[in-house]
């Protein structure tokens, strides 16, 4: 995938976005613990790029994606969107009615091919409903457009009379993609669209997403929990750990030289390109920190192999290490961390 051009305009600017669950008084008077699923995330996505978001399961990726698409109402922060007509709107704070015109522009693709399609609707209704709801088409016109979309995602137009249960996982993801495309969006939040699929099918779906991006100038927020897919697809990557971005960089830079120990640990889990490459396994040990009860200091310190005294007490800030590279670690730069590319090269 081509690197983004210099003059690309920001299309989404996420600023200090927060989503907390719980923490409310229940009827019996007890106060449940606040889960900081997303806790102050800031990044900018440029038009036409694929922005990756990686992290272990449970680190808040889905919650962040849903807040951006306003499937969830954020607790705080801003999601500044640049509409085609120009100007800027904060999607995070808009009231549902004011949000309506912008909803079409930001759509979602889901992880679970089963639960993402209503089993009681035909493909025509599933893909056609977004158009009907938004008044883009009606009657025969809907059928036409649904047929075109089905063919565009590699299915047959005649399938529109069928129900989702008749399709395989990969085909269901194609249907989900067609539904997301129904409103001609500019941004698509892809929440692990291939992680529930067989490896043989994954590549087909990823290729489809790439083709569609080139054809319709789409911007993707691509969520994944494995770095392999991200390396293949994304222009820039943000690495997330318990609700916060710990590192953000262009994909090639990140893979060549990670700056955060957590990124390095994630990479150690990626199988090397050359199977004979000798590499000390630096597996990620321990469990993801509890978002309801975060450790003091650096949230990653209980699992970090480079932890020093300062890490236990002082929480690191996300700082710009070099232009376009951000990292949240006290020891960034002084550590010599292993990337993937470096290892592969060393082995040649």
């Amino acid at each position: 995938m081509s690197s983004i051009s210099v003059q690309a305009e920001p299309i989404l600017s996420v600023r200090d976005l927060k989503k907390h669950f719980g923490g409310k008084k229940t009827w019996s008077g007890a106060v449940s613990k606040t889960i900081r699923a997303v806790d102050g995330v800031t990044f900018t996505i440029y038009e036409g790029e694929t922005f990756g978001l990686v992290g272990e399961s449970g680190c808040g990726k889905t919650t962040l994606g849903r807040c951006i698409a306003r499937a969830l109402d954020p607790t705080g922060g801003e999601v500044v969107y640049a509409p085609k007509e120009g100007g800027a709107v904060d999607l995070a704070s808009l009231k549902p009615r004011d949000l309506r015109p912008y909803r079409q522009d930001v759509q979602m693709i889901f992880q679970d091919p089963i639960s993402s399609l209503n089993p009681r609707m035909t493909l025509l209704d599933i893909i056609g409903e977004p158009m009907v709801v938004n008044g883009l088409a009606r009657g025969e016109e809907v059928k036409h457009r649904v047929g075109d979309l089905l063919e565009r995602v590699g299915l047959r137009a005649e399938y529109m009379v069928r129900y989702p249960h008749a399709f395989s996982g990969g085909q269901r993801q194609r249907i989900g993609i067609a539904r997301a495309l129904a409103l001609n969006p500019r941004v698509i939040v892809c929440d692990e669209p291939v992680s529930a699929l067989d490896v043989s099918v994954q590549a087909q779906i990823l290729n489809l997403l790439q083709d569609l991006q080139a054809e319709k100038n789409l911007t993707y927020l691509f969520i994944a929990h494995d770095l392999g897919v991200v390396e293949y697809l994304c222009d820039r990557v943000a690495v997330m750990y318990v609700g916060q971005v710990v590192e953000l960089a262009e994909t090639s830079d990140l893979f060549a030289r990670p700056l955060h120990p957590y990124t390095e640990a994630l990479m150690s889990a990626v199988p090397p390109a050359n199977p004979r490459a000798a590499r000390a396994p630096r597996l990620l040990e321990g469990d993801l920190a509890n978002a309801a009860n975060l450790p003091p200091g650096c949230h990653f310190h209980p699992r970090c192999g480079y932890c020093v005294e300062r890490c236990r007490t002082e929480e690191p800030e996300l700082r710009e290490y070099s232009p376009g590279r951000f990292v949240r670690c006290h020891r960034a730069g002084e550590l010599k961390l292993d990337g993937v590319a470096e290892l592969a090269e060393a082995d040649l």
């Binding site: 079409q104 889901f110 992880q111 993402s116 209503n118 609707m121 409903e129 989900g176 539904r179 129904a182």
Partner: peptide, 21 residues
């Protein structure tokens, strides 16, 4: 369920989500 989330994201009204989904 994700199909309900999808319906919210493409702007289906609450009534519609209850009745159709």
């Amino acid at each position: 369920q994700d199909f309900v989330t999808a319906a919210r994201v493409y702007g289906a009204s609450r009534t519609r989500i209850i009745a159709k989904h």
